[in-house]
């Protein structure tokens, strides 16, 4: 092969249009190359695909069932349909199932658009069952049998056990992203895992101990990958509860973390001249979106200078700091 030549490619069709991608690409890569982005929930560019949510499924000619585009490798001559009746049906149902069982109120705009595109109607499963507090104690293979008149949900109270972030599992759609970010895909801390089974499966520390008693190192990488707002900065959580979270008034300032020499980029989300959240760009070559506790949460010194005028949100932020 001559220098600079492309690796051997694979040609397939997406909705009838031919597209060539490098061997080893996924169907999702091919769809994107063809200009047809697909909905995803459990997929993220910086994590290994777990193909659990099934919202990115596509129809591959000759396959009995639909295939997850995020992880199925392309094959020469494959014919992929992304908008067939079967695909639309499955995607609509996955969104409906999730929205009928969890609080999807904080998902991103794209997801909102897809849900309306597929015509989701989560209300058709009946009124949602109210919060319960026994989800962490449920045992595999057993459940309480109801009369079917309320759709079972994952609603429960928010877990607030530290000053840095909260876990609102009423919003959890079990996409596994936080587990991956905590584990092999980023932090290698393994503080959380999927526990339980079936509808009672949940993200948990060992024996549901609080985060401060677990292996958690408070890097906050789970927060940055969460697609539903189930994991959230304590500051954001408190501000939302006080109805003071105003994203359209926030500015985002990119800077470099001042703690060590690695050079992580930080995006400081600022409201009323106060840092309310810190993220890192997912395409940054150093971080791939991941940070450590210092970059993520160690910003207080910036705003504890003593000579700043008190703003309305200071009291809320102080409460979040414990």
């Amino acid at each position: 092969m001559a220098d600079g030549a492309d690796p051997p490619g694979v040609t397939l069709t997406v909705d009838g249009a031919a597209v060539a991608v490098p061997a080893g690409s996924t169907i999702l890569d091919a769809c994107r190359a063809a200009g047809k982005d697909q909905p995803t929930l459990c997929y993220l560019d910086n994590l290994t695909p777990v193909n659990a949510c099934r919202v990115c499924v596509v129809e591959v000619d000759g396959n009995r069932t639909l295939a997850p585009s995020c992880s199925r490798p392309v094959e020469e001559g494959m014919a992929v349909g992304t908008d067939t009746d079967r695909v639309r049906h499955s995607r609509k149902m996955v969104y409906e199932f999730l929205a009928s069982s969890a609080d999807m109120g904080l998902v991103d705009e794209q997801t909102v658009r897809w849900m309306s595109y597929y015509g989701c109607d989560p209300a058709r499963y009946g009124p949602q069952a109210g919060p319960v507090e026994d989800r962490d104690e449920r045992t595999a293979g057993h459940h309480r049998i109801g009369d079917g008149h309320a759709a079972e949900t994952v609603h429960q109270s928010v877990k607030v056990d530290n000053e840095l972030y909260v876990r609102d599992y009423s919003r959890c759609i079990l996409c596994y992203k936080c587990v991956e970010a905590c584990g092999e895909d980023a932090q290698n801390t393994f503080a959380i895992a999927v526990a339980g089974r079936g509808f009672d499966a949940r993200i948990s520390t060992e024996f549901d101990v609080g985060l401060t008693d677990s292996a958690c190192v408070f890097c906050g990488n789970c927060i940055s990958v969460c697609p539903t707002g189930a994991l959230m900065f304590r500051s954001e959580h408190e501000l939302r509860a006080a109805d003071m979270w105003e994203e359209d008034r926030q500015t985002v300032t990119r800077t470099v973390c001042s703690y060590c020499g690695v050079g992580c980029n930080l995006d400081l989300h600022v409201q009323d001249n106060r840092i309310v959240k810190v993220t890192s760009p997912i395409d940054h070559s150093v971080t791939s979106g991941h940070l450590c506790i210092k970059g993520r949460f160690g910003y207080e010194y910036v705003q504890e200078l003593g000579d700043l005028a008190v703003t309305p949100i200071d009291e809320v932020l102080r409460r979040a700091r414990g």
């Binding site: 949510c53 099934r54 109801g146 089974r197």
Partner: peptide
């Protein structure tokens, strides 16, 4: 099926619950 679903993928995790609920409504 609701008890034995592993819970990994959404169609089965929630679908087996909704199926059981629907049947309970009908049998009720």
């Amino acid at each position: 099926f609701r008890d034995e679903s592993c819970g990994q993928c959404v169609p089965c995790r929630v679908g087996t619950v909704r199926q059981e609920e629907l049947l309970a409504r009908h049998l009720g």
